[in-house]
Simulated assay, not measured.
Amino acid sequence: MGSESTDPVDKKPARDEPPHYHGHRERLRARFHDAGADALSDYELLEMALFAALPRRDTKPLAKALLKRFGSFAEVVHAPENLLREVDGIGEASITQLKLLAAAAGRIAKGEIKRSLALSSWNDVIAYCRSDMAFAEKEQFRILFLDKRNQLIADEVQQTGTVDHTPVYPREVIKRALELSATAVILVHNHPSGDPSPSQADIQMTKAIIGIASPLGISVHDHIIVGKNGHASLKGMRLNLACAPARLRAFTIR
């Protein structure tokens, strides 16, 4: 495991020996400003993101190593810190920089959701859920609470479980919806395995919540499952989600 503070290539070069990557950094910045982010590849964006953390190192090899290890820009910035530390050349400054990017992306996405009508911006809803949950190491069950205009009232993580399951309590879902005067909810959970396909437990839990919510005038607009390999919408899959008999037992989604 490498560290910025001990890596010899991070030492400041002699004044009469300008770093070989200096011109490359300037050209990359110019292309970013002139042509925009779309003109840069994932590894080039990562290079730039690491400039501030590694001011005296060539960040291209590190950016490529990160992408080789994790797969994409999004997966790099959302990767768990302990796994990032396994990449040679990564230290605390680099990890902080990457986690800042992840936090900024989540904050921006959440702000966009709050400013828009949730159901008229379905792609934004999906993007927000994936950016915040798709790369988590543990399963999370969260709820988006909506008002009668389908605007977001609250976004809350109700339960956090293990790598392959988390408990869900339908009674607590509806209790919280009533506390917030929500008229609709969107259920969301992640599959750390990467495969967003719903399990039978996921489907049964969704039916149970619909069965309790419906008589109270609360709509369950959808149950979205996200993973690093995509997402699944139970509504979009046209599953039979007709109201099940109201049962207040806990479910374990997988």
Score class of each variant (00 low, 15 high):
K110H: 14
E139T: 09
P170R: 09
E139V: 10
L187M: 12
R249V: 08
L152F: 13
N123D: 12
F73Q: 01
H221S: 13
F145H: 13
R31A: 05
S214F: 08
G2C: 07
T166Y: 06
T160N: 10
I212M: 12
I143D: 11
P18E: 06
G91D: 03
I209W: 15
D34H: 10
P170Q: 11
I212P: 04
Y169L: 11
P13F: 07
R130W: 03
L67S: 03
L119P: 04
L84F: 09
K207W: 03
I210Q: 04
L178D: 06
A250I: 09
I210V: 15
T6F: 05
I218N: 02
S120Q: 12
K99T: 11
I210M: 07
T96H: 11
A244S: 15
D195A: 06
E75S: 10
R107F: 13
P80R: 04
S197C: 12
N123P: 01
K235F: 12
E137I: 09
T252P: 00
L83Q: 14
N150C: 10
V157Y: 10
F32T: 00
L146P: 05
F70P: 01
R57L: 00
H189P: 05
I210C: 08
R25H: 04
Y128R: 02
I212N: 05
I143M: 15
D88E: 10
L152K: 11
G106N: 11
A177H: 06
T162K: 14
A109H: 07
N229P: 00
S94A: 09
G217K: 04
G161S: 13
G236R: 12
L146K: 06
D10S: 15
A246G: 14
N82W: 14
R56Q: 08
V77N: 01
R69F: 00
D16N: 09
S199G: 03
H24I: 05
G194V: 12
P192D: 09
L100G: 00
A63I: 03
S131G: 09
A232R: 10
A52K: 15
P80L: 02
R69M: 02
T6A: 01
R85L: 13
Y21S: 03
Y128V: 00
Y21R: 03
A102D: 06
R247K: 12
L54T: 03
N240R: 08
K235L: 12
R56E: 08
P61W: 00
E139A: 05
S214E: 13
R171F: 15
H20Y: 07
I212A: 09
D16A: 04
R15Y: 11
A49Q: 09
I95P: 01
A103Y: 01
Q140W: 13
K11F: 12
E172Q: 15
N150F: 15
L144A: 15
